[in-house]
């Protein structure tokens, strides 16, 4: 049992995966000696060498495009994109090559590529460093999109993502890198990669969230107790494909759902959840599915981000509204 942060959980998970499989290579900008700008890969190059922990040229399409080639050669590349807003030069390779290779080859080619992206706001950063582009990847067939909400999940989910023969976009909630939890590596992971997790059981309404918003929603649920409300919190963990059975079970139980994410409202993950829940849980719903999210603007200058980002009060406001029906 060790106390680790979310960032160290990913680091330890990467290390475990590299020890287990010599074909796992880690690649990205500044990930070697520096250990990445968030130190997530700290110490790996020292222990695994420059051939397996590759400091790449500063070109994101190159990172993903060469990862495709390495995967074709039998490697399992884990690519780090330094910040959410810097993934777009690689977007073509991700969408047209990584995501489609299995399909277009009728399953003859597998693409076990993991693309790690620190994402989300709340760290007072300059523009392009606080974005939540997960819907842009969840919309792409052939990709799996996951995100961890706590250090234990971080440790196990990165290993499960690396073990996946499908390409996985692995979003890391950068403002939670320093959250701490107890990890016992000897206890196997409780859930498969693409299963959602009920992190708090409740009866009155369901908060559906992931990544950085899991902590926010748990805090909101605890605060709601004072108002006499017993909220259920579901950490979705996988954005594509959603674990619909877990979502449906919770919403059928509570009759009310609020989806919470930092990403923009329109065409966001919450839109898909609302549609699916309305199809499957229509006769159980006491209220429409509501969404508490970032707004339909580009990410704002950081002095305004606290207003832009869903926080405890905005989540509770959403709960008030969903309870008002």
């Amino acid at each position: 049992m060790t106390k680790i942060t979310l960032g160290k959980g990913i680091n330890a998970g990467l290390r475990a995966a590299m020890e287990a499989d010599p074909k796992v290579v880690v690649m990205g900008e500044d990930i070697g000696k520096l250990g990445g700008v968030f130190r997530v890969t700290e110490g790996l190059q020292k222990d695994f060498g420059e051939d397996r922990v590759i400091d790449t040229p500063l070109a994101e399409s190159g990172i993903i495009g060469t990862a495709v080639g390495l995967a074709l050669r039998g490697y399992r590349p884990v690519c780090e994109i330094q910040f959410d807003g810097f993934v777009f030069p690689a977007y073509d390779q991700i969408i047209n090559q990584v995501a489609k290779m299995h399909y277009r080859s009728m399953g003859k080619i597998k693409m076990p590529v993991v693309i790690r992206i620190p994402y989300g706001g709340g760290i007072g950063a300059v523009e392009h460093h606080s974005e939540s582009p997960e819907a842009l990847f969840a919309h792409v067939n052939g990709l799996k999109v996951v995100t961890c909400g706590d250090p234990v999940d971080a440790y196990w989910m990165i290993q499960q993502a690396i073990a996946s023969d499908d390409p996985v976009v692995f979003f890391e909630p950068k403002r939670r890198y320093h959250e701490k939890a107890e990890l016992d590596e000897s206890v196997p992971p409780a859930l498969p990669l693409h299963q959602a997790k009920v992190v708090r059981e409740g009866a009155d309404a369901t908060l559906l969230c992931y990544g950085p918003m899991v902590k926010t929603c748990v805090q909101a649920a605890e605060a709601a107790v004072e108002d006499g409300r017993n909220l259920e919190v579901v950490d979705l963990r996988t954005i594509s494909p959603f674990d619909l059975p877990t979502i449906f079970a919770s919403v059928k139980k509570t009759g009310r759902a609020v989806v919470v994410h930092e990403a923009t409202l329109s065409f966001g993950p919450g839109s898909e959840i609302a549609a699916r829940v309305s199809e499957e849980c229509f006769y159980h719903l006491e209220a429409p599915v509501l969404r508490v999210t970032g707004f339909d603007t580009p990410y704002p200058p950081s002095r305004m981000e606290e207003e832009y980002l869903p926080d405890l009060d905005r989540v509770l406001d959403g709960v008030d509204r969903v309870m008002g029906y």
């Binding site: 495009g65 060469t66 080639g69 390495l70 074709l72 047209n96």
Partner: peptide, 25 residues
């Protein structure tokens, strides 16, 4: 012989990555 690639130039990166794999092998 890899599959035909229609997006112009994308395969040059795949080739380079594959060659990096040969190097590592």
């Amino acid at each position: 012989f890899h599959l035909y690639t229609i997006v112009i130039g994308a395969q040059t990166l795949h080739a380079t990555g594959y060659a990096m794999g040969q190097q590592r092998d």
